Amino acid sequence: KWEEIAERLREEFNINPEEAREAVEKAGGNEEEARRIVKK
């Protein structure tokens, strides 16, 4: 599940997989929260 979210974030925000994974981890697997983290 987290991998899927990280993949979507990576494609959408054009970030590297590591950044995407970190955002999802910080968000506890919550996609909306992960998006907010990435946008900062």
Rank of each mutant, 00 (worst) to 15 (best):
K1S: 13
K1A: 15
K1L: 14
K1D: 13
K1V: 14
W2G: 04
W2P: 05
W2N: 06
E3D: 11
E3H: 14
E3F: 13
E3Q: 13
E3R: 14
E4N: 09
E4F: 10
I5F: 04
I5E: 02
I5P: 00
A6H: 03
A6L: 09
E7D: 12
E7V: 10
E7W: 12
E7N: 14
E7G: 09
R8T: 05
L9Q: 00
L9G: 00
R10T: 09
R10W: 11
R10P: 01
R10V: 12
R10F: 05
E11Y: 15
E11K: 15
E11C: 13
E11G: 09
E11W: 15
E11N: 14
E12C: 06
F13M: 07
F13Y: 10
F13S: 03
F13P: 02
F13I: 03
F13D: 03
F13T: 04
F13L: 07
N14A: 07
N14W: 06
N14I: 04
N14K: 12
I15K: 02
I15R: 02
I15M: 07
I15P: 03
I15C: 09
I15N: 02
I15G: 03
I15S: 03
N16V: 06
N16M: 10
N16Y: 06
N16R: 10
N16L: 12
N16W: 05
P17Y: 15
P17A: 15
P17V: 13
P17H: 13
P17C: 13
P17W: 15
P17M: 15
P17T: 08
P17R: 11
P17E: 14
E18F: 11
E18W: 15
E18I: 12
E18Q: 11
E19F: 12
E19Q: 13
E19T: 10
E19S: 10
E19V: 13
E19C: 09
A20D: 01
A20K: 00
A20V: 03
A20E: 01
A20G: 02
R21H: 08
R21Q: 09
R21E: 07
R21G: 04
E22D: 13
E22T: 10
E22M: 15
E22S: 13
E22Y: 11
E22P: 01
A23P: 00
A23H: 03
A23G: 02
A23M: 06
A23L: 07
A23F: 05
V24Y: 04
V24D: 00
V24R: 00
V24S: 02
E25V: 13
E25I: 15
E25K: 12
E25Q: 11
K26T: 06
K26P: 01
K26F: 09
K26C: 06
K26L: 10
K26A: 12
K26H: 08
K26D: 03
A27M: 03
A27E: 01
A27D: 00
A27R: 00
A27H: 01
G28E: 08
G28V: 09
G28N: 14
G28D: 11
G29E: 02
G29T: 01
G29I: 01
G29F: 05
G29V: 01
N30E: 05
N30S: 09
N30P: 00
N30H: 07
N30D: 12
N30R: 06
E31C: 06
E31R: 04
E31Y: 15
E31K: 04
E31M: 10
E31D: 03
E31V: 07
E31I: 10
E31W: 14
E32V: 09
E32N: 07
E32W: 13
E32L: 09
E32T: 10
E33S: 07
E33Q: 09
E33K: 08
E33A: 10
E33F: 06
A34G: 02
A34W: 00
R35H: 05
R35I: 08
R35K: 08
R35D: 01
R36D: 08
I37Q: 07
I37S: 06
I37P: 00
I37K: 04
I37Y: 09
V38F: 04
V38A: 11
V38T: 04
V38P: 02
V38W: 04
K39N: 12
K39D: 09
K39V: 14
K40G: 14
K40S: 11
